[in-house]
């Protein structure tokens, strides 16, 4: 009987080595371990043995069964691993094929530049003020020392709604709104749309954007204005940027200045961007005129302040190397997706 077990084992080993598929392993399992399988068959014949022989035989039979079971499991694992390997091989992709595109969005370059400025000034203690675009003449001109008949009104071709109402030509109008409602200390910036009756071309647009700044407090000096603008220029145009103030005239500031920065194209040596000057004009500024303060019930004997107005388009043109202003307002997605 023991010999039969040995034969079964031998036969199993022969068969399993030649099996390579999951199906053949399964039929092998049925053949040897199934209800009608060889092991079961041998076990059924155990009755023919003497009681003394039975334990030894039983033990051997169990050993053979365990051996077969473990071998089958082993073989199955082997086959699975091989099949997985095949499957993975099949799933291999060409990693150099193009990506599946995500739907990408973007923010407008003019707003991105404005956002940078906002962050900078908020960090310096400024709040963001907002004011109307359709505005009273008073806020846009009169309160800013530009009464009707003032020649400086000519420099800003104005769109009028009525005699008293217009489209603001400058964000400076927000200065007055702020000072009417808030007493010093005041530190605000106010970005927004402004309107001037210019025809659209590569460098002009009837609608463009400015960012106004206003600081009013006790002891504010022109040195503070200069220092603030230096921080701004370095943040926007690079650490090595220098600024230059040129005396100018704005009716609502005194002293007034236009501010140039060293050219970002050439660093001041002179190039196409700065037309060989080495400097590029970026903003206008000055100390708030005492009459403007007085009109808003702020005593110029106690308080002083400075204001500045930055052209957003000009900064964005510089920053992104865009040559034609019109592209900002056409909103061609191929243009927008670059930023």
């Amino acid at each position: 009987m023991i010999d039969i077990l040995a034969d079964i084992k031998k036969a199993f080993i022969e068969k399993i080595t030649s099996s390579s598929s999951e199906e053949s392993i399964e039929s092998l399992r049925v053949d040897f371990l199934g209800k009608k399988g060889r092991i079961t068959g041998v076990m059924k014949q155990m009755g023919q043995l003497t009681p003394e022989e039975r334990p030894a035989f039983g033990q051997s039979a169990n050993e053979v069964r365990t051996f077969i079971e473990s071998k089958i499991a082993e073989k199955k694992k082997e086959i699975k691993a091989r099949e997985l390997e095949k499957a993975l091989e099949k799933e291999t992709v060409d990693v150099t094929m193009p990506a599946t595109p995500m739907t990408e969005g973007s923010l407008h370059p003019l707003n991105k530049v404005t956002e940078e400025m906002k962050r900078l000034f908020i960090g310096m203690g400024y709040e963001i003020a907002e004011g109307p675009e359709v505005e009273y003449d008073y806020y846009n001109f009169e309160a800013l020392n530009l009464p009707e008949g003032h020649p400086a009104r000519d420099t800003q071709d104005t769109f009028y709604i009525t005699d008293k109402m217009l489209l603001r030509t400058q964000t400076s109008s927000v200065q007055i709104h702020v000072m009417e409602h808030k007493k010093p200390p005041i530190r605000i910036i106010s970005p927004g749309k402004v309107y001037r009756a210019d025809n659209l071309d590569a460098t002009h647009s009837p609608i463009f954007h400015q960012l106004e700044g206003l600081v009013v407090d006790k002891g504010v000096t022109m040195g503070d204005l200069k220092g603030t603008l230096e921080v701004y220029a370095k943040a926007m145009f690079g650490d090595n940027t220098k600024i230059r103030l040129r005396p100018h005239h704005f009716p609502f500031t005194e002293p007034s200045a236009e501010v140039d920065v060293t050219c970002w194209g050439c660093g001041g040596k002179g190039c196409r961007i700065c037309k060989g000057e080495g400097w590029v004009e970026v903003l206008g500024c000055g100390m708030v005129h005492p009459d403007v303060l007085r009109r808003c019930d702020i005593d110029p004997e106690v308080y002083s302040g400075f204001a500045f107005g930055i052209g957003i388009e000009r900064t964005a043109l510089a920053r992104y190397g865009v040559s034609d202003l019109r592209q900002f307002f056409e909103n061609d997605v191929r243009f927008l997706e670059q930023f």
Binding site: F121, I122, G123, M124, G125, Y126, E127, P185, R187, V215, D217, K218, G219, V220, T221, G223, D224, K226, G227, T228, V231
Partner: peptide, 11 residues
Amino acid sequence: TLLKNCEMTLG
């Protein structure tokens, strides 16, 4: 200078 005579404000 940077508003050296003024108190801090919160942006």
